[in-house]
Amino acid sequence: MPLSVQETEVKNPPVSRPPLDPHLKALENEAIHIFREVAAEFEKPVMLYSIGKDSSVLLHLARKAFYPGRVPFPLLHVDTTWKFREMIEFRDQIAEKYDLDLVVHTNPRGAEEGITPFSHGSALYTDIMKTEALRQALDAGGYDAAFGGARRDEEASRAKERIYSFRTPDHKWDPRNQRPELWNIYNGMVRKGESVRAFPLSNWTEVDIWRYIQAEDIPLVPLYYAAERPYVERDGMMILAEDPRLELLPGETVQQGMIRFRTLGCFPLTGAIRSTASNLEEVIAELEIATVSERQGRAIDRDQSGSMEKKKREGYF
């Protein structure tokens, strides 16, 4: 079996916990099955690691799937250089703690051409610094399978996607011609250059993710919990004001308030919500009565209906 990483004994042995409820157990079993299947069938898998809550759950499941062996593939983080500071700190701590192989890639065009979310607008910026960067990193690594933490309940075009999502050599997704996917039998046959994106969390909802984080005590970036933080209001979003690169526009002031984030991405494009939920129990309680979806805080998803499908066709994961 070709493995890209030497298999050695796992570093942090697990602790015993009370059994999961049957619903989460079923989701966990399915995800572990997918991880093992991809690791066995593909020559060079990689896991896309975005540092957010879904990635944190994904990583936890990967560690479970291969225990007592080590996670047999590297983690890839596409760093736009505009992530929240706390995300990067968290990423490096986790890689160290769990003895992971972390690959970080930044599209050099960002620095060369001065592409920032402020100068180029969210759509073009995302296209270059996320989608193009991802394609570059996948090509450079020669990966034939990439795990992602996407869930079908996130967005309408995701709801259509297979668990093994087939991509052409230039990473395109053809939603009208997806391979049929019956039972839990996955077709992992690809030609050289072709690849799949594999989504072990396909059938999880946002509430499932949080309940699982709670049940399994999974560490998260602190930005998910409410705290007194500085922010500015811009385009109907509250943007965290801690990075010196954020320049105030006329009329804007830095305010202080109890805020937190439901999703994490690039700080200039990610809106906070007002919240007093400063721990996991409170976040879950808040979520169970939430009336807006999690992607609501993301500038890049709001451009138009169908914008996610368009990005995915171009190779966004």
């Binding site: 409820d21 049957p22 619903h23 079923a26 059938n203 209001e233 109907g236 979003m237 509250m238 809106g271 919500i273 007002r274 919240s275 309680a285 808040e286 169970e288 009565i289 939430a290 009336t291 807006v292 609501q296 805080g297 709001r302």
Partner: peptide, 28 residues
Amino acid sequence: MTATATSPSATILPFAEPLKAVRDTRPL
């Protein structure tokens, strides 16, 4: 842009519905 997105600070409002009970079966 959506209607809710234009109002600054999307506060999560409490909902009239009671909290959902913890599920104890496998999904159908």
